[in-house]
Write a protein that binds this DNA or RNA. Structure first.
Lengths: 163, 163
DNA sequence: TGGGCATAATTGACACGTCAACCAGGTTGG
DNA sequence: CCAACCTGGTTGACGTGTCAATTATGCCCA
């Protein structure tokens, strides 16, 4: 059945002009959204999106601290990326790293008072920006549709892992 | 009418948990999509997404060349970003820059045979990847919905320029 | 006992982006 | 005339991300 068109089946088909237009619109727009939010966060709180996710995770963690690789899996980052980022955050006094008592060679990442305060001050403006730039872009139905778009995409990407 | 709830009108409302969930899903997924496509392009053609858009623009340009700042506005990049990127592409022999005859202080960017060939070899695999990773994630209706999501978002971002 | 292995994390090299500063060459107005 | 500005473009500094290599530590087992 799927072989009805022998040499040009689904596996070889290229996107139509319309599909490509949607694709371009989609990437460009999400790109713009990301950068607008990043710049708001930077201006209002002197934090990058990366800083924010790290601070958020630590704020919600037991004792405001977490093992480095747990943190990495929790926020879905590669260890090396996290390591670089923690280095920069440590320089700015937002977090601290110390030897982990229980795990050999483990590093405990912990929120400093400075970091906790920076996060606390950033949340409301950041959430407001998310509402203004993202949520308010849609009607309630459109927002649900956006959620379903994301869900479909995610499911597809998850099942089609790189071989 | 919009003042029905005096002190907590639209201007102050924060996203609900559900809105936030959708938001996070949306950014994370688009992020993953972008990186998956970039890595396919890299593996299959040794090009970055940036390379691709530059090469695409030049391929479609008159005589395979374009003034630097025209190119920048055409693909929607800042001049400085383009300048840096062209430097890297020039090092790899994909493009060349030369003085512009007509415009004082103008730089003409032109496709080299190497660049043209690299682009030619990259298109089909790249389009295929777009179909596999993006288009095939959706039913036709979902794809349209994704297009409308992008359109609504873009319209919103355009009208709400940074003040 | 002493290789090999696995795990946890860091490091270095390099691509990419942004921001601000800078460098030409006009044009323009006091 | 020349200073003030505008345009086109580059540069440097720095934050960010990926990949591959490296370091440190414990474990397993021949």
């Amino acid at each position: 059945m799927t072989k009805a068109i022998p040499e040009r089946g689904r596996g070889r088909r290229l996107p139509t002009a319309e599909e490509l237009r949607i694709w371009r619109d989609f990437v460009e727009t999400t790109e713009a959204l990301k950068s607008r939010l990043a710049s708001r966060l930077q201006i209002e709180s002197s934090l990058s999106p990366g800083d924010y996710v790290v601070l958020l995770a630590l704020s919600e963690a037991q004792d405001n601290q977490m093992r480095s690789s747990e943190l990495a899996t929790h926020i879905g980052w590669e260890r090396s990326r996290l390591s670089h980022h923690l280095g920069r955050m440590e320089r700015r006094g937002l977090i601290r790293r110390q030897e982990c008592a229980t795990v050999p060679r483990g590093a405990e990442v912990l929120l400093t008072p400075t970091g906790a305060e920076a996060f606390r001050r950033s949340t409301v403006p950041h959430l407001r920006a998310i509402r203004e730039l993202f949520v308010d872009a849609f009607t309630p139905e459109q927002l649900l549709a956006a959620g379903e778009t994301a869900a479909a995409l995610r499911a597809h990407l998850d099942t089609h892992q790189e071989e």
